[in-house]
Design a protein around this nucleic acid. Structure first.
Lengths: 207, 207
DNA sequence: TTTATTTAATTAACATTGTTATGTTAGTAA
DNA sequence: TTACTAACATAACAATGTTAATTAAATAAA
């Protein structure tokens, strides 16, 4: 192994230490509560070292989002191996919810941190590529369902359907993450709620 | 008017000036972006004056939030003046979305952070009181729909239905607030999406 | 009327945090 | 041995939430 190769490997090692520590801290305490100094302390480097790897705090957050987004898309792709469109909706929808519940921290970072996604990052995340873009997958599923005349004739806009369906699954996760356990509601389990929501929506679009 | 009465009135006047300025700034730029100094500048007082009326920035935000939560419940109550249960679902659901879009930052604070949910505040917000508790209203609507046999017989649990329906409307707002405008999606307007989501869900539970 | 007291507001300062400017050190190359 | 470079650290700056000390004005008491 050449010297420059070893250098590069060491750089990546530090970079990953930063990302790991940041993910862990941000997950348990939130973006605002965790300082750069805390992250630095965690990895036993000085705060400035972080800036050798990430332009600023926002860039660090965005990189975490990007990585987690890729995991989510992978999880959804795995669930998309199902020929029947409506059944595929059910499976991918459940995969979305399952991911959100299993990795609430990632989900929060991706979808609730209000970090604006920057255009050059979106391409990196695989958007626009049918192989990796989860929204496109959802869209295509509705297009297929329309083409196969599985839906009631009033439903003609696959984008609108995709966004409505997404809203349902997203809402299940968002409410679970932020409100579940609040004592004034007699909560049903998130699995039940997810199944019910998806079920109702599929029933609602069917012919 | 006595002197102490005039004093009290003047205090309230200043307090309301602070709340008004804060609401306006927070609404257009978000909580983190607006400093106490900015709020103070807006009302032409020194920053410290704010601390004579609110313990800290969080208390100021929470008070705004409390006021707007009451508006939300009021808006939903107003939309609930509809005898037909399924139509009532539609109207209250749209009221929820409309509110979330109008006050995205307050919505975010209320439903997307853990800051607010302290027990003593919940009581103040009217939870548990059928007159002001929006969840209870939703629950009662589904109970009525079940009793009137408007729903398919497989739907028997009003809590589960309420939480699923809530998830749908909540998701519309959450996605709109955090992701709307991201360029890789051909967005439909939030009104269209809300109508579609609610429509599909109502269609999905109907007999 | 004059003096003391209370209230409302201000100015100045502090602590924290993101960030940068300026070293410093240890390995590598000349 | 000397110069250079990469990887770090220390110290400092600027912004921001917040508090301490202080002033000015209104009111009450003498």
């Amino acid at each position: 192994m050449s010297i420059s190769e070893r250098r590069e490997r060491d750089r990546l090692k530090v970079r990953n230490k930063i990302l790991d520590a940041a993910r862990r801290l941000f997950a348990s305490e939130g973006y605002d509560a965790v300082t750069m100094r805390r992250v630095a302390e965690e990895i036993e480097y000085s705060p400035t070292t972080i800036y050798l790897h990430f332009k600023d705090k926002d860039a660090l957050i965005r990189e975490l989002c990007r990585l987690d987004m890729m995991s989510l898309m992978q999880a959804i792709q795995n669930a998309a191996d199902e020929p029947e469109p409506l059944e595929r909706l059910r499976k991918t929808g459940m995969a979305y919810v399952t991911f959100g519940i299993e990795y609430p921290n990632h989900f929060r970072l991706m979808f609730m941190s209000n970090r604006l996604h920057e255009v050059e990052q979106l391409a990196e995340m695989g958007h626009g590529n049918p192989e990796t873009d989860a929204y496109l997958l959802l869209l295509n599923t509705f297009e297929e369902a329309i083409a196969k005349q599985l839906l009631a004739p009033e439903f003609t806009d696959p984008h609108l359907l995709a966004q409505a369906f997404w809203a349902g699954t997203h809402g299940v996760v968002a409410i679970h993450i932020n409100l579940y356990g609040d004592p004034w509601i007699e909560w049903r389990s998130v699995e039940e709620t997810a199944k019910m929501t998806i079920n109702v929506m599929i029933r609602g679009v069917q012919r």
